[in-house]
């Protein structure tokens, strides 16, 4: 099976957010970009499928600027991906998710892809749009919020479950398929030290992103704000548990107006 897994360099979870001087984006200064949660789950899923379906290959693809994009691809290789393609966005990567999907689709179309895996959303912009947009652009069915995915060799189809408001939907689908993966159902592996060293020397194919579509609408960030620091809880003074309960219910009703 030919599996493409799309990954994105995202600031580490512990990153202290700062606003860039133009006020429209995160200040990337001193930010460490890594392969994060949802994408780690997607890579893990790709590797699990590769291990269960003989003859499979996993091709990691990422869109973005140097050097962070190459770094997440090396991380994907260290985890076990066979091949990597870096779509060089130049210094100002597209931020509209459909533009990103177009760049990915252009790179995926010419390579074999029975399955395209992504994290259901990136940990920074949290759009969750790219997988579905890719499905449309590649003319392939897509499913987001997928929690587990197996290949049923006898039936030549994927079997998977998808989280929705109704519960867990069970689906069956042949190739080709685009899947956006929910985080944390699988336990992503950690790359081992020898694999990390080896990944430094692995070849990474580089393609340059095409100019953005002229007829498409898109959005651009005009303001990036951090919330005013929460000043800390207003502590409710009380002598008895009953008093605590009464006072809390009162403020929730009268001050916060959230009490039903």
């Amino acid at each position: 099976m030919e599996i493409v897994v799309c990954v994105k360099p995202v600031p580490e979870a512990e990153t202290r957010l700062r606003v860039a001087t133009d006020g429209t984006a995160l200040d990337p200064e001193a930010v460490k970009f890594v392969l994060t949660g949802y994408d780690e789950s997607a890579v893990e899923q790709a590797l699990l499928l590769k291990e269960s379906v003989p003859g499979s290959k996993v091709h990691a693809i990422s869109y973005g600027p140097a050097p962070r994009t190459e770094e997440v691809l090396r991380a994907a290789i260290a985890l076990g991906c066979d091949q990597a393609t870096w779509i060089d966005s130049g210094a100002a990567p597209a931020t509209d998710p459909v533009d990103v999907a177009r760049a990915l689709a252009a790179a995926i179309r010419p390579v074999p892809h029975d399955l395209v895996l992504l994290g259901k959303q990136a940990g920074d912009d949290e759009e969750g749009v790219v997988a579905a947009a890719l499905g449309e652009l590649l003319e392939v069915p897509d499913f987001g919020f997928v929690v587990d995915l197996r290949w049923d060799a006898a039936g030549s189809r994927f079997k998977f479950r998808r989280a929705s408001e109704a519960g867990l939907e069970s689906w069956e689908a042949p190739t080709p398929l685009v899947v956006g993966l929910q985080q944390a159902w699988n336990d992503p592996r950690t790359a081992k030290l020898p694999a990390i060293l080896k990944s430094r020397k692995a070849p990474i194919a580089k393609v340059t992103a095409a100019a953005r579509s002229a007829e498409a609408a898109r959005s651009r960030s005009v303001k990036f704000e951090l919330p005013a620091p929460r000043t800390g809880a207003k502590l409710i003074e009380f002598k008895t548990p009953q008093e605590a309960a009464e006072k809390l219910v009162k403020v929730l009703r009268e001050e916060a107006k959230v009490f039903p």
Partner: peptide, 14 residues
Amino acid sequence: TPEQESLRDLARKF
């Protein structure tokens, strides 16, 4: 080097 950073990241995560 990026290689050293990735080694350090591995150790830090572990």
